[in-house]
Design a protein around this nucleic acid. Structure first.
Length: 163
DNA sequence: AGTTCGGACCGTT
DNA sequence: AACGGTCCGAACT
């Protein structure tokens, strides 16, 4: 699993690639990244990196990425992958509640579990866990800072009702 | 209107 | 067995 940094206007994201695709994406950290020699990226990984970089930048502008790298979600459980798939179907500018997501995957009562699965999302931004709000249009939670959730939503034109 | 409380519910560790 | 990025209704302020 190799890691590469992606510079954006918002800071440096870390992208993790496995043999089968993009497996993780981390929000910029304030920590100083140790200056190690970048391991060589396989030819394939560098292609994926370009795709990731492009997609990420588009997403940060609130646009829908025109192409994503292959995603490696094999680390997730069946339930989680189902949630993540459902998230990917929520278009930019729109939002769903945790309950709505639960219904869309045929588990209407697994509301809190959906919340958990969102928090376990290894590829935020590209898998839009931020588009899931609490009932009544309230912001709800976010593993990384809520500021990110707000920022992403406003960029997409989905105005989280106050708060 | 807004807030707080208490249960019910389900997947993960 | 305990914990969540929840939800809903009831009972408050």
């Amino acid at each position: 699993m190799t890691t590469a940094l992606i510079q954006t206007a918002e800071g440096a994201f870390a992208a993790h690639f496995s043999e089968s695709g993009l497996a993780g994406l981390d929000f910029p950290t304030t920590e100083i990244v140790p200056r190690t020699v970048a391991p060589e990226l396989s030819a394939q990984s560098s292609v994926w990196l370009r795709l990731t970089e492009r997609a990420l930048k588009q997403a940060l502008e609130g646009k829908t990425p025109d192409e994503l790298p292959p995603l490696d979600l094999s680390a997730g459980t069946e339930f989680q992958r189902r949630v993540w798939d459902a998230l990917r179907k929520v278009p930019s500018g729109q939002t769903k509640s945790y309950a709505q997501v639960a219904q869309s995957i045929e588990r209407p009562k697994a509301v809190r579990a959906v919340g958990q699965a969102c928090g376990a999302n290894p590829i935020p931004v590209l898998i839009p866990c931020h588009r899931v709000l609490a009932a009544g249009g309230k912001l709800g939670g976010f593993s990384s800072s809520l500021d990110w959730k707000r920022k992403l939503l406003t960029r997409e034109g989905a105005i989280p009702t106050s708060d």
